[in-house]
Every structure is written in C-alpha cells, then in structure tokens.
Design a protein around this nucleic acid. Structure first.
Length: 227
DNA sequence: GGAATTTGACCACT
DNA sequence: AGTGGTCAAATTCC
C-alpha cells in the first residue's frame, strides 16, 4: 500500500484509461495522517490572508463542533511540488474566531502579496516593544513603498529589517526567542508565556520566520501559537 | 471553457 | 467502529 500511496494517483493518470479509474478509486484517502512535520496554529478574528494562493480540497464536519473544517492545499502543489496545506475552522461565532493550522512549509515562490508591514502597537507593553517592523519579502514590485501603509504618526518608529535573501533577522533585545520547531522555523515575541510544553500565549506580537527569514506566521494579542 | 469549489466516497488511524 | 484527511467527480463560478 505504501508504494501505491506515494504520489500514486498522479502517476496513474499516465496509465491506460481502463486501468486509471479503478486505480484512482483504490487510492482515495490513502494520504491520511502522514503528518510528521511541524504544525503552526493561528487563531484570528477574521479569515486569514497570508499572501499565499490556496486551493480548497475538502470540508468536513468535526465532532462536537458546530462549524465544519475546511481543507486547503497550496495552489502550486502540482506545478511546483509545494507541500504546504492548512486547515481552517471557525471556533467561535460572536465575535468570530478562526483557527488555522498550517502543515509543512511553502516551497513555491508565488506569493501574490509582495510584502507586509507588521505593526506592533499593543498598549499593555512597555515603550521599547511598541515598535513597527517592516518585513520585506522576496518579490517586490517596482512601485511598492511599504512605509506608506503605516500611519503618519508612526512612521518614525518604522524599522526596516534585512531583505530575506540579503541578511539574517536578529531580534532586538526586548524580543525573546520562545519557540523553535524541528524545522527551520523560529518564533520571536516581545512578550510570551508558556502555557504548556507546546502552547504559548503571546501578550504582544509574534513573528514566525522560516529559513529564508521570511514571515510565515504572525499572531497578535492573546493569540496562541502551538508547535 | 477552464478554474475553483462542493461533496460523497475512501481509507488510515485510534 | 468512529473520526478525520484526502481524493476526485460533479457542480458552480468567472
């Protein structure tokens, strides 16, 4: 069965027509629970737009949950072999809250959102952590000016971080590295508490970065990040 | 008409 | 046996 399941259904399409249908049906669902890589969980008040193109491939009702769980894979899964998937589930109605679980990292380079500005403006923290960081991703259009997205009164506090490919990100002093997965992912926060061995409560903002120093996840006040 | 979504089926895992 | 992750045909959308 292992040999059949490893990328089997794609290869079967090149086989003979009569063979194709029976093989496809035999292989339905055989990819389940192969999850050995790290996961990242984000809980947000709105549907997450993380800059990647996702294709929905399923939806299931979940036991003891009034809301179904939606399953997404990277749009570029087949053309670029990108393994990234995510599950999204509404966990609260009013105010709405969504839990998004990410599996694997994007290997594709097709961000449709060229860069993002992360604003850390929580009121509970000290002044030193009240900083705006400008994270630039790899693909930038010629006319893109990220500082324009920041409110006028905050512009002086904007600090540009190194481009993903040109340098490495070193968190400032008041940041602490509180999480590291088995993969090349590190999380930084200006304030976090360990709830359990796997779950952290972030009192400020947290940015998870992959091996290219590219933001792969951001959580804000009172969110939880799990590894 | 092609791309994206929906939905029932299949099956690994517990 | 129940649950949840994925496939793929059917349907909808643009």
């Amino acid at each position: 069965m292992d040999s059949l399941c490893s990328d089997g259904y794609r290869k079967s399409e090149d086989s003979g027509e009569s063979f194709k249908t029976s093989v496809r049906k035999d292989r339905r669902g055989c990819y389940k629970r192969r999850r050995t890589s790290e996961t990242r969980i984000k809980e947000t008040s709105s549907w997450i737009d993380d800059g990647h193109a996702w294709r929905k491939y399923g939806q299931k009702p979940i036991l003891n949950s009034p809301h179904p769980r939606s399953y997404f894979r990277c749009t570029h899964k087949f053309e670029q072999g990108c393994p990234a998937t995510k599950h999204v589930q509404k966990i609260r109605e009013d105010p709405p809250k969504y839990r998004t679980t990410y599996f694997d990292h994007h290997t594709c380079r097709n961000l449709y959102k060229s860069s993002e500005v992360i604003i850390m403006d929580h009121t509970a923290g000290n002044n030193s952590s009240n900083t705006i960081w400008n994270f630039q991703s790899q693909i930038e259009p010629d006319n893109y000016e990220p500082k324009d997205q920041v409110k006028e009164e905050n512009k002086e506090r904007v600090q540009d971080l190194p481009n993903n490919k040109s340098g490495s990100f070193i968190p400032p002093d008041h940041f602490t590295t509180f999480g590291q997965t088995s993969g090349p992912l590190t999380a930084f926060s200006s304030g976090s508490d360990v709830i359990s061995s796997d779950v952290y409560s972030c009192t400020a903002s947290t940015h998870s970065m992959d091996m290219d120093n590219m933001i792969v996840g951001t959580v804000f006040d009172d969110d939880f990040l799990e590894y």
